[in-house]
Design a protein around this nucleic acid. Sequence first.
DNA 1: TTAAAATTAGGAATAATTCCTAATTTCGGT
DNA 2: ACCGAAATTAGGAATTATTCCTAATTTTAA
Lengths: 130, 130
Amino acid sequence: MNNYSKQREAILDVMKENLVHPTAEEIYQFVLEKEPQISKSTVYRNINILVELGEIKKLNMTVGPDRYDYLYKEHSHAICEKCGNIFDFYDDFNKEEISKELLKQIGNHMDINSITIYGICEDCKSNNKK
Amino acid sequence: MNNYSKQREAILDVMKENLVHPTAEEIYQFVLEKEPQISKSTVYRNINILVELGEIKKLNMTVGPDRYDYLYKEHSHAICEKCGNIFDFYDDFNKEEISKELLKQIGNHMDINSITIYGICEDCKSNNKK
DNA sequence: TTAAAATTAGGAATAATTCCTAATTTCGGT
DNA sequence: ACCGAAATTAGGAATTATTCCTAATTTTAA
């Protein structure tokens, strides 16, 4: 795993150009413009490889399909569990500190990749159509 | 939405008895023992209702299907992105404080439901079969 | 330049979840 | 307790999201 291919390049380019947390399907649609013959399985396979390589990040959604993010700059995410909106969040609270706290509590080291906050956003609170 | 049904009751009971973060399929299997005629769609529908009612929490997984948790006591989760292991995490770092920070950054209120940490656990680090 | 290894397109297969419908259960008012 | 309206159910079909399979093509590295 890790040979060059213009398809994988195009997918990474799309991620760099679109900082909008696209779904796999949306990435596929964007990439089609650059590589009209690309197949969806290639998109999925390469997304997974790029996640594995740490080039992009998978955002685990409560609502709808998972989303992906290119980390041009280290940040975390706050996700609305109702509408799926994602708010970028530049950590002031510190991973190292939380990491130490976590270690104390679960008696287990963990390499922290990200901290995600799940909640209900302002709009969903006011448009409360429950 | 919100009439009594023994099926929904049984699902909530299962969640209270099994503090193991089951998947929807696992919940279905557990509930079958109490309600042998229950259908899977009923399980899915009621899981969603219980999440909506705030009785149980949905855990958004990186690997495998999503999991659910009954919050017998308020806590957060640290999830291994490789093996899917979930570590319960009793917040010492304070939601209120993070909430204020978030507000400053994204200029938007949000009711924080949970904070989830994603990373790679000790075991996956050492058994590094990448 | 060439053989091995990796990647691809395209579509089939699988997994997870939601939707549909007619029958049953629950609820609220009397 | 009875009755009509509203909610819920079982069962299965349908949909959505993702992975897997295969033969052909591309990339790599000697």
